[in-house]
Design a protein around this nucleic acid. Structure first.
Lengths: 195, 195, 195, 195
DNA sequence: CAGTAATCGAGACGGTACGTCCCGTCTTTAT
DNA sequence: ATAAAGACGGGACGTACCGTCTCGATTACTG
């Protein structure tokens, strides 16, 4: 996305790039996606619109760059599936709550529906986000907490999905208790155990 | 949303309302959200913009009205949790795939983040969508398939969430096989059963 | 304009008519022509728009009705051209300054350019306004102050015109001194008198 | 009105400006003020609405710009007050009759009543129009045709005013004969000369 | 003195223009 | 080649009025 043409007489200004990205973030934090316009980013960053468009093909990709720079939760090794998952979510929650990007994700997803290029880019972002969950699940399998043969991707779907629903549709908090219930459901299922 | 209190005056035209909604749906089907403009809706419906804005405060609320009118899957009684869920999803898939609304939902969700009124409206829509799932789960509990004490709402979160992730993030199809795996996960869990 | 159809079962409400006209005047006084809308007149007069449009074919004619109801300066007999003219202008000034109609006249004139029917109506209003001036000039002729053979209409043009220019173009006050100069110019001319 | 201060940036396009103004004039000529809409001007001029609104704050100011560009009658030296005035009016009449602006002036004047900024702008336009008349009068004074001490501005008021009344109120033609009578009135007055 | 048709208040309706906002591109001079 | 600045064409937005229309309720006249 940011790749400059073959070779150049004058390198692109890193300072400008940083200024643009941080202006974007600040505006997002202040007024949300609705308040974010390229003109305003340019003015805030004291950059020109061309300087922005030279780097990112449009508003969505500019925001996407912010996500790419977002740190990924690094799962700390723990002694149980539940403990590791809780730790991961604590990290995740901290990162997301601190960043104005939280409220922007849904809109990016929305835009994806009509914008395959953006969809591909966002899928890559999401993949990075699935990696730590995958490791946690695999470790739980190795540890013997989850059955060998567990459909890892499905479990990730369930984890991400339930959280997303809670966050974006129901506008609820994701509490540690709720996560514990979720972990329990995934571990034990809701099916009646025959004796 | 639609009808203010009134006395003895010209009532709002049902015909106009219908024409507007169906024009909206048709345009959405033809050219997607990007192609939907209020002017075009007005022209297609042979209505005036005032007539549209008198009923819905903006484009999002107009689209929302479409959702509110969408039929809700009526769960057919079946003889197992899996069978009922599959049947419900078949209905749901049919309704959604037939409707151009599918591609529009994410954008509506996105808008909700900064628009509490819309969020409330959409939450109501989503609540209606949760009802049949709730019935299916409760029936499964009564039938003895799921344990008494199952956290019904959590299971709904998992069902809706996993599907949403698949549909909107991964842009994947929701196949019957995938649903079967999901049902199995929910029923049995991924935890290792002790001997 | 106000003439009802041939015969009727129920006569038009005089109260409504009065309420509409006085609402129009009040709005004009408060917010000028720009603030005058039929909707607002209707709301202020607690009348319906149909009740207004049944009587006057549009906004301009409604305002025109106000002019038609305006009292015309009745020239008081005096002992000189100057005295009578000053007295007439004092009356005129009082009527106009008290009425919000003053600022509306130009707009009506403007509308006339593209609206012959309105032009004819306004011409009639203006004719009524020329009558007293005509009488004053004719009396001055009879009295021997002005030469027999004076082009009366031309003098009226000059009187009305100079005032209009001052009022509307130059946005100046029309003072008694200025009028005295005007009268003197009309009486004596600016030509050099040969000995 | 047109050029803000600037530095090193893309200058405003003169071509666009010209295209907009001539489109405005053409539309005014074809369909009058009623037919003049900004959208149509933009379409005709192949310019965007922003480009128009960047230069003029609204429709009235756009039209005003047309007046500012209108040539002013340059008084040709003649050998009498009457001759010079007639020549000036011939020029004025030619300019006005050739321009579609004639029918628009009243509306501009009307707008002025509630719009001081426009009023000031139009006053400047009118001032330019008074200059040649002033020169003619002053020359007549020097030549000895008019008395030394003539109230020049008052005479201009009378000239402009009488013409305006005739043109806009009475919707009459301004003939050369009528002007001759006006000149005579101004020169000799209507007062009875004592022996 | 009942019937009836014009009138009333209310405000919905189809139109149309407004002026604003933002997009993504382009043009200028300076570095 | 890049940069800042901001003009440009394009196009949608939501608002404001216009003058017409449709309601049910209300009169005065007519028969």
């Amino acid at each position: 996305m940011t790749a400059p043409p073959s070779r150049s007489q004058r390198p692109r200004s890193l300072a400008a790039e940083r200024a643009i990205l941080s202006a974007t973030l600040r505006i997002l934090a202040e007024d949300g996606y609705a308040g974010l316009t390229i003109d305003r980013v340019a003015a805030t960053a004291r950059a020109s619109k061309s300087t922005i468009y030279r780097r990112w093909k449009n508003k969505e990709h500019l925001i996407l760059a912010l996500f790419e720079r977002l740190p990924v939760a690094m799962p700390e090794a723990g002694d149980s599936f539940e403990a590791e998952l809780l730790s991961a979510f604590r990290q995740f929650a901290r990162i997301m709550d601190e960043s104005p990007l939280r409220g922007v994700l849904p809109m990016l997803v929305a835009e994806c529906v009509n914008n395959p290029a953006l969809a591909a880019a966002l899928a890559k972002v999401n993949d990075r986000r699935r990696v730590p969950l995958r490791q946690i699940i695999e470790r739980a399998v190795e540890r013997g907490e989850l059955v060998r043969g567990t459909d890892v991707e499905l479990v990730i779907d369930v984890l991400q999905g339930a959280i997303a629903i809670r966050l974006y549709f129901l506008l609820d908090q994701v509490t540690e208790d709720w996560i514990r219930s979720l972990v329990q459901l995934i571990r034990d299922g809701a099916g009646r155990r025959e004796r």
